[in-house]
Amino acid sequence: MKKILTLLFLLPVYACAANVALYESYQNFEEHIKDRSNKIDGLVGYFAKEVVDQALSDIKKGDAEDKVVSNLSFPHIMKNEISHFEKTAADGDVGCLTVNGYESSNSPVSFSLLYTKEQGRWLIKDMFIAMPEKVEDLPNYAQCPDEAEASF
């Protein structure tokens, strides 16, 4: 009986975790990097395995850890957010998120992120940052990084 109760208690939690929208996942990441700890370990749970492996390999080859971490902590570029759009593939394991806003000098900036679902978690796999001249040029729908780059 105790086992069944535990299972019933855990099921909704798992279901919620698996259905976390891309934007919510992005917000969690954004919140997490606010302390700017400059350590790669803290970012591991937010990026796809191949991105983490590449980052660790770059550090091993001599890249400064703070530069690698700063590259992965890209949300800090955006100071004021104005809109976001997301889409997921039919199989539900790949999705793209576009976040629009302004950077520190009030110039428009847009992040287009590719997410992949690994073990029930949305992880960032690729990124394209656009800095158009006018705010009207920011995308008004979800774009994957390659799409956003091609249309820039």
Binding site: V51, Q54, A55, D58, D63, V68, N71, L72, F74, D126, M127, F128, I129, A130, M131, P132, E133, P145, E149, F152
Partner: peptide, 16 residues
């Protein structure tokens, strides 16, 4: 001009 930064992770483009 269009400036493209190919970073170790991701790309960034700026127009001007």
């Amino acid at each position: 001009y269009t400036l493209t930064l190919n970073m170790k992770f991701g790309r960034m483009k700026v127009k001007g």
